[in-house]
Structure formats: C-alpha cells, structure tokens
C-alpha cells in the first residue's frame, strides 16, 4: 500500500464529500441535532444539569462518583456533550460511514481508479475520509461547546481546554469502530440506502441479541463497541484507557472484515 496514493485518495474524497450528498447525509442531521442541543444548553439546560435537581436525575443513570466527576469536578457542559455524543454517535457514524464505497462500487465508478491504485488503498482512503469528516465535525462542535462552557461553567481555562481535548479524543476514538463497522456493509452493498439500512439493522439486531442473551452468552455482550460505552463516561476509571484501546481493536476487526469483502467484490 502506497502512503502517498492513500493520502491523495483520502483528501480527494474528503474534499468532494463535504458539500455532496455523501457528506450532507451525515452533516445535516448532525448539525440540526447539535444546534438544538446547544440551544437547550444555552437556554438554561446547562444550569439545570448542575443544579440539585439535575444532579439527582443524573444519579438515576450514573453512579454518584461518576456524576460528581462529570458535573462537579469537570465542566458540566462538556460532560453533557460527552454523554450525548456517545449516545448518538452510532447513528451519526452510520450516516457518515454507509457510503464509503457502496454507491461508487455499485456504479462501477472505481474502474478508472483501480488501474492506478490498489483496492486496499481505495478501501483505507475511504475509511480515513469518513473518519476525518466525523472528526472535523466533532472538532468544530467541541470548539463551540468549549466556548459555551467557559461562559457557563466558569472553570479555569486550562482545565476546560484539557477536558475539551480529552472529550474530543474519546468521541473520535469511539467513532472509529462504528465507521469501520459500516465499511463491512458499504463493501457489500451497491447503494447508500442499502448499506445504511443493512448496517443499521444488523447493528440494532446485534444490540438486542447481546442484551437479551448476555447472561447465557456473556461474549455476545462484546460484539459491538457500545458495550464499553459506560466505561468511557467514567473519566477517573483506570479502565478507560483499556476501553479506548479496545475501540481500536474493534476497528481493526471490522476493517479486516470489510477489506476482505471489498477484495473479493466485483467492481
């Protein structure tokens, strides 16, 4: 695999995704959702989160230690973004990752490229491009939330900036296996809709099965990366680095599956 060609293909795809259906499919819902959330936080939601009532509700979902770490020790607005981000990322990553290869492969458009690059370069570049798109969108979101946090949470500047960088890293790393998961379906299907529907259906079914059968078959619980999501909230947990490493491992496994399918695919 040639790094120069992979980089060329990645940047080309990223540049031509942003304002096209491929990118807008992810960017528009992402933008609308987070605008609504930021509006809510701006209109008093952030103060509510750190109020006694808010903290009480939070303790219904999280342990008291995690609640304190998220909403007292660290900037609450950023913590809220982390929680909402981790919850909604699977959907956004499905939207961002469903069209890595499917539509172009279905139209045979790769034929002009494949005498000049390898399938591996094409596969990896499309994955990296989707990851970069999500990372850039997340980065812009975190910048906006950090500015809001500095205004609302009143924590020291360095604490806020460090925590913001940490949250961005966690969210981006969590996105990697989710986009890799979609590469499997994008390698198989011949259209964006088909790749999205098949990917999201399998994700949903696997999630249900892993919840129902985790007592009898504990290994099933770990089929999807969101089984480790809870450990990513707990910023003081020693397991958090292990969970982040696991996200990279999930990415490698899913990418290998997608790569195998794309290698065998007729283009």
């Amino acid at each position: 695999m040639d790094p120069r060609r992979t980089l060329l293909l990645t940047l080309f795809d990223l540049r031509h995704s942003v304002f096209k259906v491929k990118g807008l499919l992810f960017l528009l819902p992402f933008l609308l959702y987070w605008l609504a959330i930021l509006q809510l936080l701006h209109d008093g939601g952030a103060e509510f989160v750190v109020s006694q009532q808010g903290m009480l509700i939070s303790t219904l979902l999280l342990t008291p230690d995690v609640t304190r770490a998220l909403f007292i020790d660290n900037p609450a607005v950023l913590s809220m973004t982390l929680m909402l981000g981790l919850t909604t990322l699977p959907l956004f990553c499905m939207l961002a990752g469903c069209n890595q290869l499917a539509a172009d492969a279905g139209r045979n458009s790769f034929r002009f490229l494949l005498t000049r690059c390898t399938r591996s370069e094409l596969f990896v570049s499309r994955y990296l491009s989707a990851c970069l798109l999500v990372a850039v969108a997340m980065g812009l979101l975190i910048v906006a939330v950090t500015l809001m946090s500095l205004h609302i949470d009143q924590k020291p500047l360095l604490t806020t900036l460090t925590y913001a960088a940490w949250i961005l890293a966690v969210l981006v790393i969590y996105a990697l296996p989710l986009i890799a998961f979609m590469s499997i379906f994008s390698s198989m299907m011949s259209g964006t809709v088909g790749a999205f529907l098949s990917g999201s259906s399998v994700f949903f079914v696997l999630m249900m099965i892993s919840r129902w059968l985790d007592d009898d078959y504990p290994a099933l619980f770990y089929v999807l990366p969101n089984s480790l999501k809870a450990s990513l909230y707990d910023v003081y947990s020693p397991d958090i680095m292990l969970s982040l490493a696991a996200m990279l491992a999930y990415s490698v496994v899913y990418l290998s599956l997608g790569w195998l399918l794309f290698q065998r695919r007729s283009v």
Partner: peptide
C-alpha cells in the same frame, strides 16, 4: 489504461478534478 464499457466517472465531481487525480495517482 482502460476504457471500460459504460463505466461512469465519479458522480458530481468535475472532469478536471478526476483527471488530475488520475495523473497524480
């Protein structure tokens, strides 16, 4: 080099950008 039968270029991307990419690859 190949002229495939009825294979389309990448949709929505100017001819110039695609040919430049092919040359750079």
């Amino acid at each position: 080099g190949i002229l495939p039968q009825d294979a389309p270029f990448l949709k929505g991307i100017r001819v110039r950008d695609q040919l430049d990419l092919f040359a750079r690859l």
